[in-house]
Every structure is written in structure tokens, then in C-alpha cells.
Design a protein around this nucleic acid. Structure first.
Length: 882
DNA sequence: TGGATCACG
DNA sequence: ACGTACGTGATCCAG
């Protein structure tokens, strides 16, 4: 049966460009979009086996829509030169694949594809459209499916009328009405103001089309919505017209000419060589032994199932290096049962059920042998998981999880299926596909499970050389090898060690809170004149703004805001406000920190064992979950008491906390080279007081507490990438006043101003910013013509080098600190990291040593042109280490 | 499941 | 004119 595949070339190239790090050949030619395009093509050819295939491109400047609406696509950022230069290469690529490409002066790829799918419908051909553009869903029919690329281009999601109905409750053609109502900022289609996806869907479910909605405005619920619709009838109609893909373009293409019989490996491998796609070269040889032969496909995947009986025969297969994946039942590796072990090398793939593995002496020795190199996905998970089973693992020499995160921190928490799609030939199913999700989650039968795990191991094996190549290209080998990889082993120790919790203390605090909350609840009901759910912003809003007629100062998408900063302003109007604020505060302590924390206490150890996520944040910081130990209260005294429940795990020991003082501003001083800021730190001054002196032009004695508070807010703003609006919100002053502060700040700290301008310029030129240790963050919106997107990216460009370098520094300090503890044979243990703070438990006889050693190591982690300063303190509980 | 809120740096 | 502070995670409600 025929299968016609139509590819939206511009859309796929764009997606690929922004999803992959900016790779280039040794000659400096950028190739990331080409690589993404290639990966997608190989996948489509293999999985869809098209009999006919074609790629459409936009052509010419004047698209017919422009004459209808001058702003069309006005919101779209200019194509960056790094991408433009790749289009000719993509054309070359298609020629090498012998795939027909097509463009039509004055028309977009959408319109060409729209026209061809109409013909396909008429001829009843099975057709699949590949694109990243959701608008194209309007083309779906019984004959035509649309495959949307996801996660860049590495995954595709197939839509037939059934999926569209399931997701939106709409017929494919109603996608046009959906866009007409909600608009599309990326194409600058305005839509109706105040109507987003939810409202648009509600309206369409009721009335069916834009026209029907407009005819029935009077019946629509919601006064504001009616008003918006009435005032924007023209906009809605125009938006619908703009969103409609043309299906009558003058396309003169004989579909028979797009017939596809596979590619010739010779020109393709030539092209790959030119692009320096070394890893893909091997792949096409396998896929293309003889043109046209049915046997051309890669050899079927196979692996060895290891059992008690046959294991002896595979002892010699445990080589070095080797890829290793440990499958566990669940996310939390402190508890998750082990299911099995996948192993892979050049010509071996094995699966060992855990019951077999744990009794296989040779495997356990291999795991513990530091000379046997292991390539893994998340070595911390393996290390901690195995430690709970009393097994050791040594010799982890490459971690694809960390490598993939460094190459693109925007894709947080990389999964093995997406890594495989980007860097390997083997396809790995997502865990959700194998296990199901939510209540339906189930460990599958052994045959399914073993194959899944075997694929994972094989994918790790194949990914490593590609990842190594790309890390080298981006000069991030040291960042991985000397920072993130050793850090993961330090974090493994900290997580496994855990922190002892005094649960009696928590219970006691919980009982106190229960009493106070009960009293507050009565008081609030009385003041409100009836019972309601205080935790529901909606119900609370009704009480405050309807029944008590308090003024609405701020709104959220769903109604009037009841957030703390608004309530604080309302406090003078009514006594209920203070009661609500206290209720919220205490309620948070009870639910998150008493009940939530108690649930996480490990029954055997009476400790909490957090999970540090090393591959989540865009800036390079860690995050902590289950429980989150990086947001334990400290600012308010009542909350701070929670820290009394965090205690040393050995009798007579102490908690010791050490935090960097003003690390972000010190880093700013270093990277901006601002003389004034450097001077302040070299003189060891209080930085907020010094800022107040300079900004307000007063002497140290004349700085009032208000001036210092305002200067402190300005310093925060500087680190966040300042805006007058943000500062005015924070300080409750006018925008003008905030603007004046900023101006005066930049007068005195002109080096900071210069650096901020430069870093934004640099981000625009490179498309990314970096930290001192060359951690990289891509900022695709930095060239956007959309003010909001661009401003956000600009602030990020200013903040990320600062926050990210601070993360680099403390990570380095943690590695040095663990080394120091081991070298000196100390019993003290590192327990927690809270961004700029490290917490240890320390035996009494090591207190003196640690009070010296910890600040010394932390302050010398990285040498800057201002000193780093660390404050250290200790006590019987975490609370007392203040 | 997404939004609002609030805990931390 | 636009409408925001930077980075996280947990809990609760409502649809």
C-alpha cells in the first residue's frame, strides 16, 4: 500500500535548530539543524516506510497573507544567521537522500502541503504530514495524519481524527476556529483578547465555529467575555482567515515523481563526512547494504537473557568499558525494588533479572571493580540504589544523563528515551509506554521488561561516543569530568547518609499548630459570618471581595488575587485579614513541613533521604525533592523552629552550617570588573550599607535602615536582571522612583552597567550565555521581536552567569570538602546543600577542626578578584547552628 | 492536571 | 505601549 509522507521543511528545521546545541564543524559551519533534520528523516524512513516522500519549503518574501494583514508573522523573530546558513545544507542533505523538495514563490510550506493533502484526500492515499506546527492539525482526515515533532525533533506524536477528538473534543477543521478565537502569538494572529485555549474550547464545544459564536454573543456566559467578543468581531474573523491553510495553491507537481525507493549510501556518507556526523556514518552502512533490497533494514535487535543456569557462559562478556542500566520499580531509588540489570558493549547486549544478578558473584565483583569502566545513565541513582542493597559500584567513567543535561540544560531531567532518540540508533520506549501511568502503572511481563532494559543499555552504549564528541565541541569535557561527575558521587553519599529527624518534636509542634489553627478557623468563620474553605482562593475571594466588599487590588487569570502581598495591603480594612495571613502561614507549616516531612521519614533509619536532582535547573543549581530540604523555613521564627527537628544522627554530635556571604554579588564584582564593587568587597564592607552610601550620597553613619533596605532590594534586582517595574513592586514605590534608584546605581557602579549591556549583546550574538566554568544556557528568545519574550531572555542573560557561577563555585567546594574529609580521616559528614550553604554533622572532637576547615575549603574553591567569605556556626540542632 | 500560593536561595 | 523581577518544589483546589 502507498504511503505518502509530506514534510514541512521550515518548521522541522526551526524545531531542530532550537532543540539542539549549536554544533559546528571544524571549519566553523553550523550543523545542528541539519543533524536534527537528518535524525528525523532516518526515523521517518525507518518507521513509516514511505513509498512517496517530499519536503516543502517556504519561498519568496511576499506571502499572500501579507496583503490581508500587514502584521502577519510580525511577532516572529528574525531567522538567526546560524540557522539561515543551514538551509542550503538541508537542501544538499535531501539531494543526498534522493528526496524530492518543492517550493513555490510567494507561498508557505503549509499551503503547498495543504494543497497536496487535499489531492491525497480525493485520491484516498494514506498520507502523513510531518511538522512542528499545531496549525497543521486542521489538515487531518481519514486519509491524512499529522505527526507533530516533540522535544525538538527527536519524538513524534501522530494525530488522526481520533486523537484530535480526544485531546480537544474538536473535528480537525475546527482547529482553525480554535486559532481564530485564541490567536497565535508566534504567528502574530491576534485572536480575541482575553480568550485563551480553555475559553476557546468551551465556546467551540457549545457553538461549533467562530461564526456561530459571533452570532450567539448574547447567549455567551460572562459579561466581560461578551464585551470582548462584541468589540472584536473583525479580529476574530480575520484571525480565522489567517489561520486557514490554503488548499488551492497553484502546485504543479506530479505525485508520481515523489516515489521513493531508498537512498544511495555513497553520496549520503560523503555528505555526513562533510558535516562531520561521525556517529551517523556507521548507521547508514547498516541500513543500506544493497540498494533496493528488502534486507536493507538494520539487523533485528537481540539480546541475551541471563539465568542461573547459563550465567557462567557470560562471565567473559563482562568487559570494560561497558554500558550498564539498573531497572528499578519506581522513581525514588531509596525505596524502589530492583527489577534487573541491562548490560551492553559492542557485540553484546544482556539482561539479568535482579534475582539472578544479586547472586551472580562475578557480576558483583565486576560492579565493585574500579578498573572496569562503566557507562551509565545517572550514576548517582545506581550508586545509592545499590548501596541500599549493600552492593558497591566503582569505575563509573561516563554518565549520559549528566552529559546530556550539560549539552542542553533547557531540557531538564533528560530521559533515556529522548537521549536515545538524539544520540543513538536504538529506539528506547519511554517508561510510561512500558509501565503505563497513574493508577494503571504496572510492572510488565518479563519478556517486555527485559527487552526494554536491554534497549536502554544498548542506547547508552551507542550514545557515549556521540555525547563525547559534542561535549568536546562545546568545551564542556572538564565541566563534566571534573565537576558534575565527581559531584554526583558526593551527592550519592549525602543522600544515602540522610539527615536524622526528631519526629517527637515534629508531632509536638503539629499538636500546637492544630490548636492554633482550630482557634483561627473559628475566629475567621465568625468574622466572615459563616463557614467556608479558607484554603480555596476562590471561596476566600467571594468572602473578601463580595461579602465584605474589600477593594480588588490585583487580579489573577482566574479572579481577584488573594496573595500575601495583596492581603497585607488590605489588612487595615478588616480584622479578618490578619487572621487569614496567620492561618495561611501556620497551615503551610502543618501541611508541608510537619505532615509532609513526617511522611518522608525512613522507617528504618528515622532519617529523611532527599533526592538531589543534578539535571533539572536551567542555571546549574541543584534541586531537592522527596522531601525538598532546600526550602525549610528560616525567615519567620515560628517556621524556623522546624529546624529544631533536624538533628545529628549520633549521640553527642553537632550540626554545623557554613554559608557563603553575598556570593552572587561577589561573582558579579569579579565578572563585571566593576572597580567600586570590587573595592567594597576588598575593604570587607557591608555591601548593602555601602550601596546605600554610594546611591544616596551619604556617609556610613547617615545610612538609615530604610536606605539600607532599599539598597538591598536594588542589589537583589541587579542580580535578577533589573527592571524598574520589578523593583517598584518589591519596594512598594512608584516606577519613576524605582527608575531613579537604578539610574543612580548605574552611575556609581558603571562597570556593572557596562557588563550588563555587553552580556546581552553577547547573548544576542551567540544565542547563549556561559558561566565561569563554561556551563551553557541557550536563550532562543533573545532575538525575539516580542517585547516580553525578549525582555525575559535579556534578564536571564544577566542573571544566569551570576547564579550559574555561584552554583559552579559551591559544587567545586563540595568536591574539595569531601576530599578533605577523606584525606584527613575525619568522621564528620556532609549532609545538605542549600545553594549557598553546606550543612554537616560533626563529632564533638572534630568541631574545632571543622570550624576552620570548612570555611577555608569553601573560600578557596575558586579564586576570584574579590575574596569569598564564609560564615560558619554550629549547635545541637540545625536551628541552633545560626 | 494547571493555577494559585508560599516555602527557600 | 507592551507587563516583569532570577531559580526551584509541595500542597491545595477546582474542573
Amino acid at each position: 500500500m502507498s504511503h505518502f509522507v509530506l514534510i514541512d521543511g521550515n518548521s522541522v528545521a526551526n524545531r531542530a535548530f532550537y532543540a539542539l546545541p549549536l554544533l559546528s564543524t571544524s571549519a566553523g559551519l553550523h550543523t545542528n539543524a541539519v543533524l536534527g533534520f537528518t535524525t528525523m528523516l532516518l526515523k521517518v524512513l525507518e518507521e513509516m516506510k514511505p513509498t512517496h516522500i517530499m519536503v516543502a519549503f517556504d519561498a519568496g518574501k511576499v506571502v499572500f497573507r501579507h496583503s490581508e494583514y500587514a502584521e502577519y508573522k510580525g511577532g516572529r523573530s528574525k531567522t538567526p544567521p546560524e540557522l539561515s546558513e543551514q538551509f542550503p545544507l538541508i537542501r544538499e542533505l535531501l539531494d543526498a537522500f534522493s528526496i524530492k523538495r518543492f517550493e513555490l514563490e510567494g507561498y508557505e510550506a503549509d499551503d503547498i502541503i495543504g494543497t497536496l493533502t487535499k489531492q491525497a484526500d480525493e485520491q484516498a492515499w494514506k498520507t502523513t504530514v510531518i511538522t512542528g506546527d499545531k496549525d497543521m492539525l486542521q489538515l487531518v482526515s481519514e486519509q491524512v495524519s499529522v505527526a507533530l515533532t516533540r522535544k525538538g525533533v527527536s519524538e513524534i506524536e501522530l494525530y488522526t481524527p481520533k486523537e484530535i477528538h480526544e485531546k480537544y473534543g474538536l473535528k480537525p477543521l475546527q482547529i482553525i476556529d480554535l486559532k481564530g478565537l485564541m490567536g497565535d502569538s508566534s504567528d502574530n494572529i491576534p485572536g480575541v483578547p482575553g480568550v485563551g485555549e480553555k475559553t476557546a474550547l468551551k465556546l467551540l464545544h457549545e457553538y461549533g465555529s467562530v461564526e456561530q459564536v459571533l452570532e450567539n454573543i448574547d447567549k455567551v456566559s460572562g459579561k466581560k467575555l461578551q464585551e470582548n467578543l462584541r468589540e472584536n468581531v473583525d479580529k476574530a474573523n480575520m484571525s480565522k482567515a489567517l489561520a486557514t491553510i490554503l488548499r488551492e495553491a497553484p502546485v504543479e507537481l506530479d505525485v508520481q515523481e515523489t516515489g521513493y525507493e531508498g537512498y544511495d549510501g555513497v553520496p549520503l556518507s560523503e555528505f555526513f563526512k562533510k558535516m562531520e556526523f561521525k556517529s551517523l556514518l556507521s548507521k547508514i552502512k547498516v541500513a543500506q547494504p544493497a540498494a533496493g533490497s528488502e534486507q536493507a533494514d538494520a539487523k533485528p535487535f537481540s539480546f541475551e537473557m541471563i539465568s542461573e543456569e547459563n550465567k557462567a557462559a557470560y562471565e567473559s562478556k563482562l568487559t570494560s568499558p561497558m554500558a550498564l542500566y539498573i531497572e528499578m520499580d519506581g522513581e525514588n531509588y531509596h525505596h524502589a525494588p530492583f527489577l534487573g540489570v541491562g548490560l551492553a558493549a559492542e557485540d553484546t547486549v544482556m539482561f539479568v533479572p535482579w534475582d539472578v544478578a544479586k547472586e551472580w558473584q562475578v557480576l558483583c565483583e565486576w560492579l565493585a571493580d574500579p578498573a572496569k569502566e562503566k557507562w551509565v545513565f545517572d550514576g548517582k541513582r545506581d550508586t545509592v540504589g545499590l548501596a541500599w542493597h549493600d552492593f558497591a559500584i566503582k569505575g563509573i567513567s561516563f554518565d549520559v544523563y549528566l552529559a546530556s543535561y550539560l549539552l542542553n540544560a533547557a531540557e531538564s531531567n533528560p530521559t533515556l528515551d529522548s537521549i536515545a532518540a538524539q544520540y543513538a540508533q536504538t529506539r528506547v520506549l519511554s517508561d510510561e509506554e512500558v509501565y503505563g501511568k497513574g493508577a494503571k502503572r504496572l510492572v510488565p511481563e518479563m519478556d517486555v521488561l527485559s527487552e526494554h532494559v536491554a534497549h536502554k543499555a544498548a542506547a547508552i552504549w551507542q550514545s557515549v561516543p556521540v555525547l563525547r564528541e559534542q561535549l568536546a565541541e562545546n568545551e564542556m569535557e572538564k565541566l563534566l569530568g571534573e565537576l558534575e561527575a565527581p559531584l554526583s558521587m558526593v551527592l550519592a553519599l549525602m543522600e544515602k547518609q540522610g539527615v536524622k529527624v526528631n519526629s517527637e518534636r515534629l508531632v509536638q509542634m503539629g499538636e500546637d499548630l492544630d490548636k492554633k489553627l482550630a482557634a483561627l478557623t473559628d475566629q475567621i468563620y465568625e468574622l466572615a459570618g459563616g463557614a467556608f474553605n479558607i484554603n480555596s482562593p476562590k471561596q476566600l475571594g467571594e468572602i473578601l471581595f463580595d461579602r465584605l466588599s474589600l477593594p480588588v487590588l490585583k487580579k489573577t487569570k482566574t479572579g481577584p488575587s488573594t496573595s500575601a502581598d495583596v492581603l497585607e495591603k488590605l489588612a487595615p480594612y478588616h480584622p479578618i485579614i490578619d487572621a487569614i495571613l496567620t492561618f495561611r502561614q501556620l497551615g503551610k507549616l502543618r501541611s508541608t513541613y510537619i505532615e509532609g516531612l513526617t511522611k518522608e521519614i525512613h522507617t528504618k533509619t528515622s532519617k529523611v533521604h532527599t533526592l538531589y536532582n543534578q539535571a533539572t535547573t536551567a542555571t546549574g543549581r541543584l534541586s531537592s525533592t522527596d522531601p525538598n530540604l532546600q526550602n525549610i523555613p528560616i525567615r519567620m521564627e515560628e517556621g524556623r523552629k522546624i529546624r529544631e527537628a533536624f538533628i545529628p544522627s549520633e549521640d553527642g554530635w553537632y550540626m554545623l552550617a557554613a554559608d557563603y556571604s553575598q556570593i552572587e554579588l561577589r561573582i558579579l564584582a569579579h565578572i563585571s570588573q566593576d572597580e567600586n564593587l570590587i573595592d567594597a568587597f576588598q575593604k570587607g564592607m557591608d555591601i548593602h550599607t555601602r550601596t546605600a552610601m554610594d546611591v544616596f550620597g551619604v556617609s556610613e553613619e547617615e545610612v538609615t535602615s530604610l536606605m539600607r533596605r532599599q539598597a538591598k532590594a536594588v542589589n537583589f534586582g541587579i542580580v535578577y536582571g533589573i527592571s524598574d517595574y520589578g523593583l517598584s513592586q518589591n519596594l512598594n514605590i512608584t516606577r519613576k522612583e524605582a527608575g531613579d534608584f537604578i539610574e543612580r546605581y548605574f552611575d556609581v557602579f558603571s562597570g556593572v552597567k557596562r557588563w550588563m549591556d555587553e552580556i546581552v549583546q553577547q547573548a544576542k550574538a551567540d544565542g547563549h550565555v556561559t558561566t565561569l566554568l563554561n556551563r551553557r544556557r541557550y536563550l532562543p528568545d533573545i532575538r525575539s521581536s516580542n517585547f516580553n519574550l525578549r525582555s525575559f531572555a535579556e534578564r536571564t542573560a544577566m542573571n544566569t552567569p551570576i547564579q550559574g557561577t555561584a552554583a559552579d563555585v559551591i559544587k567545586l567546594a563540595m568536591i574539595r570538602m569531601q576530599e578533605a574529609i577523606e584525606e584527613k580521616g575525619l568522621d564528620s559528614r556532609m549532609l545538605l546543600q542549600v545553594h549557598d550553604e553546606l550543612v554537616f554533622e560533626v563529632p564533638e572532637n572534630e568541631l574545632e577542626v571543622m570550624r576552620q576547615l570548612v570555611p577555608e575549603v569553601m573560600e578557596s574553591a575558586l579564586s576570584l578578584n574579590v575574596p569569598l567569605k564564609v560564615d560558619v556556626s554550629d549547635g545541637r540542632t540545625w536551628y541552633d547552628a545560626k
